[in-house]
Simulated scan of single mutants.
Amino acid sequence: MSDPRFGQNRRITLPGPLRLDGGALLSPLDIAYETYGTLNGDASNAVLVCHALTGDQYVASNHPVTGKPGWWTRMIGPDKPIDPARDFVICANVLGSCMGSSGPASINPATGRAWGMAFPVITIRDMVRAQAMLLDHLGVRRLKAVVGGSMGGMQALSWAATFPERVAAAVIIASTARHSAQNIAFHEVGRQAIMADPNWRGGDYYDGAPPAAGLAVARMAAHITYLSEAGLTEKFGRRLQAREAKSFGFDADFQVESYLRYQGLSFTDRFDANAYLYITRALDYFDLAEEHGGTLANAFRDGATRFCLVSFDTDWLYPTRESRVIVQALHAAGAAASFVELSSPFGHDAFLLDSPELNRVVDGFLKTGAPR
């Protein structure tokens, strides 16, 4: 039986060009990716796993920077819903990110220096088109399934809308078909924190100190949206951090303050500030209905993809009502769609945490076509 810890880490340079939604042509195109398992003879067992905003291709193997296990080892592995003994699992670092795929931190072949803010602005659909080019290279014409949570779910939706003939099934977890004004507002706070850091220097910081302070604040603000009020209260409440009384200063008096500062600082060790700007902008531009004449159902009328949608009752970043909008559009388009709302105290991040019910739902859908 295959062991997902021994994933194949690869990087490919494709000649392109990739035409972006913004009008630019990107060529050549680097894509870093990992695979687990073996593609079968008729190339019918490929499962594409799409990562979220701050994720990467190390979905089920140790991260080379942090040393931590892959971000979805709960979902991928022997006898798990996505099993490399059965499935050929692919996870690619998205376009615009910073773990080997083309992005602002990669080298612009025209200048020999990092792209910085000269890198073209991208969209979720651009990320999907880049993944399609990778699958062409791997000899995968049709996916058994595309699976993703959060931004990964947006990619899964975009896959089904952009390449309906290439997707047999799609699993969309804790996601949405468009970013709300509130989503955009939180991202703008993070972007402004980065750009206000004097080390940002208009994005041209690769030969010096990075804007770590600004990126840490951006991560802190975003991380709050990934949690629930009940979860924060249960985990931290108003408990003080390593002290008996308030300091009457601006140190981290409360445990929740210390936690957020740690999350912010640790994030700067593995992520690029410009990449954060670009990917959050791609998320904010995402509006699947707008891409299809203003009607979400139009995005799904031309395909035979089966869909499974999952939401969490404490997720206020992409709440259940957003999933219901997608389900209604799928039904209007005549698509086969299953939906379940799961209960969890962990908010949006529930899809990354231990959730036997989520595993049961995904396992049932991938094996039988419907949640069990």
Rank of each mutant, 00 (worst) to 15 (best):
P4I: 02
N9I: 15
L14T: 14
L18C: 15
L26C: 00
L29S: 13
E34V: 15
S44G: 04
L53S: 03
V59P: 00
K68Q: 12
W72N: 04
N93P: 06
N93L: 13
L95S: 01
A105H: 10
G112A: 07
I122F: 05
T123S: 09
D126M: 05
A130Q: 02
L134D: 03
G139W: 08
R141L: 01
R142M: 01
K144Y: 08
G149S: 07
G149Q: 02
M154P: 03
L157Y: 00
W159T: 00
A160F: 01
A161P: 02
H179R: 13
H187Q: 12
P198A: 04
G203T: 04
G208D: 06
A213T: 01
H223V: 07
E229L: 14
K246R: 13
S247T: 15
S247F: 13
A252H: 12
S258A: 14
L260F: 11
Y262K: 09
G264R: 05
F267M: 14
T268R: 11
A273G: 12
N274P: 02
T280Q: 03
D284S: 12
A304Q: 11
C308Q: 11
F312H: 03
V325K: 10
A336D: 12
F339V: 06
V340F: 05
G347D: 08
P356K: 04
N359F: 04
A370D: 08
